[in-house]
Nucleic acid binder design. Structure first.
Lengths: 101, 101
DNA sequence: CGGACTATTCGATGACTGTCAAATAGTTTG
DNA sequence: CAAACTATTTGACAGTCATCGAATAGTCCG
C-alpha cells in the first residue's frame, strides 16, 4: 500500500505560508538538501545533517508539505520526500532559485 | 539635520531575517506599497491601507529595516522609507520579483 | 505472534512575535 | 516657551512556534 500525504494543489499555494515555511534555518537547510540531491529522499533524521530530534524533523516536514513546498510519499515504514520544484516555480517563478542562491 | 537609521550593509543582509521579515501579511503589503509607488514615502500610518496602530507600524518598519529590505531617512518630524531594491537584488537576485509577483 | 523499526502524535515548555495603550523624544509652529 | 505633531520606546499580553520526551500507529521480519 502506497499513498501521498495531503498537500495543497498548485492554486492553493500561498506566498505567506511559503515564506513562513522558508523563514527557518532548519527548514531552509532541508530544502537545500532536497534540491542538491536526487529525489525522492527519505525523511529519516539520520539522513540529514541537522541537530534536532525525530519529532521535530517530522514537524518541519509537515510545515513544508502543508505550505506546498514538498510532497511526501508513504511507502511501508518509510516516507519519501520530494521538492515540488515545478509546482512552486509555476506559482512563484524564480522564488526557489532566489532563496537558495 | 538629516540622517539615516542604522541598517545592515549589503554583505550583512542574510536570507533568514529577510524571509522572516517578508513572512508577514502586513509587511508584505508594505513592501508592495513601496514597490508600486515612487520612493521615498512617508512612514505615517495614514499613508498605508493597513489596519494597525502607529506603534505597530513603527515596529514593522524596524523589522524591515533591520533585515536590510528598507532604508529609513530621518528628516525633521517625518521619516522617509525606501525599498532597497538594488541592494536586495545584488544579494538575492530575483527574490523581490518572485515574492511580489 | 512478538520484537524491531520508521515516523507521527500528544503534551508540555520556553522563546519569540504581533499587537496595543501609555509614555517619551524630537521637531515645528504659534 | 508652550502646544501640536510625527514617530519611537516601553511594558504588557495573548497567540504562535520550535523543541523535546513519551506514547502511539503502522510496517517488516524472525
Amino acid at each position: 500500500m502506497s499513498s501521498t500525504l495531503p498537500q495543497p494543489s498548485i492554486d492553493e499555494i500561498e506566498i505567506v505560508p511559503v515564506l513562513q515555511a522558508l523563514a527557518d534555518p532548519v527548514r531552509l537547510e532541508l530544502i537545500r538538501a532536497l534540491r542538491s540531491n536526487p529525489s525522492p529522499r527519505s525523511c529519516a533524521v539520520t539522513e540529514y545533517d541537522v541537530e534536532i530530534s525525530a519529532p521535530t524533523l517530522s514537524h518541519h516536514w509537515k510545515v513544508l508539505r502543508e505550505a506546498g513546498l514538498t510532497t511526501t510519499f508513504v511507502e511501508g515504514r518509510t516516507r519519501w520526500v520530494e521538492l515540488r520544484t515545478e509546482d512552486v516555480h509555476a506559482r512563484f517563478p524564480g522564488l526557489l532559485d532566489a532563496v537558495l542562491a
